[in-house]
Amino acid sequence: MALHKKKPAALGIDLATTQESSSHGSIQVSDDSQFVTLSLASGASAKVLLYGATVVSWKIQDRELLWLSSASALDGSKAVRGGIPLVFPVFGPPPAGTAVEKLAQHGFARTSKWNLLGRAEDEEGSVRVEFGLSSDSLDEETKAKWPYAFGLIYSVTLRENTLETKILVQNPGSEAFDFNVLFHTYLRIPDVSTIGVQGLNSLTYRDKTLGGSEHQESSEVIKITSQTDRVYKSAPDAITVSESDKPLYTVTKTGLNDVVLWNPYSDGVEKIGDWEPKEGYKNMVCVEAGSVASWQTLEPEATWEGGVVHKAHL
């Protein structure tokens, strides 16, 4: 893959004065410089919290398409429960004996304050913002737990009926490092009992509700009827969430190997303190594109890129 010379800045553009409008739409930073809101003339919008660079809202014509817990912290005190948290450099509890073993579950990207790097629009009517995070941005405690030089550029692009999230991982250092990356997308759905997930049939998956044992998927349409936590390996690029054979969402990934399917269901939410309302599991399903079944290795002076397009069928 070609090297990208662009690097996350130590300090982004002036948040206090960042407001831009055009015939396509607008990008606006909140008064407290904690959120960036993208909007289009069509009525589509997205809201990104700089803490974790977490997308916390995606709307089309005032219809919310992401699920967010009403008890989720949005003040930077802990990772957001819902939206699209970004997992890096480890997925799940860090395995013992690895370079990430001292990190918290799901790593530090979702609990770090990102810099706003820039904004753009194109002739097709999209608006985009870019965020940066680097090893220089981390506190000393986190650096001690994962001491590699790195740079991340994360972009969020809003179009009329799609939301694209993309990440570029850079290794400016002299030592290779391994990492996982995942877009932990909470899709809002009408009722979990009526939806099905298609595109994963015949794949091998690791079932985390069964101790991580491996199984082969045998269903053309996967129904969520109990606590579900599966890592599907080498998944196809496009996964569809449907209701009564009508597509609700298509999740299309690029440069990413795997798909995680997750719903905590009624028994699982009781163990999640910031999950509200408790019956909210009925209105969400996580279809998460990532590379998590095995490690990605990034050599010195190399880059890696992956992303996902979420398309809503309204």
Rank of each mutant, 00 (worst) to 15 (best):
D31I: 05
L38G: 12
Q216E: 11
L3V: 13
P190I: 08
T162E: 12
D178C: 03
G43V: 01
H313E: 10
S291F: 03
G290R: 06
Q170I: 02
V80D: 04
S112D: 00
R206S: 02
K78H: 13
Y186R: 10
E279C: 07
T204Y: 09
S77D: 09
A41Q: 13
V169A: 08
V285M: 09
T157K: 15
G43C: 00
A302G: 06
G212T: 11
Q34D: 03
V181R: 00
V231M: 01
L116P: 08
T165L: 14
T162L: 08
S291K: 06
T165I: 15
S112N: 05
D178G: 00
Y281T: 12
A9H: 06
Y265F: 15
Y249R: 11
A16W: 05
E270R: 09
R63M: 10
G107L: 04
Y232Q: 05
F179A: 06
K271P: 00
E101W: 03
A16N: 14
D14V: 06
A46D: 02
G255Y: 04
L15G: 08
A99C: 06
N171P: 03
I153D: 06
L133P: 03
L50C: 05
Q61T: 04
L152G: 09
N201Y: 09
W295A: 13
M284Y: 08
S70I: 00
V308S: 15
R159V: 00
D245Y: 14
F35N: 09
T204G: 02
P236R: 08
E160W: 00
I189C: 12
K253G: 07
S39I: 07
P300T: 07
T209R: 14
R159W: 01
S137D: 15
L15C: 01
Y154S: 05
V308P: 09
S69V: 08
Q296V: 09
W262T: 07
T225Q: 14
V169E: 05
K47M: 01
L298N: 08
L117Q: 15
R159C: 02
S135R: 04
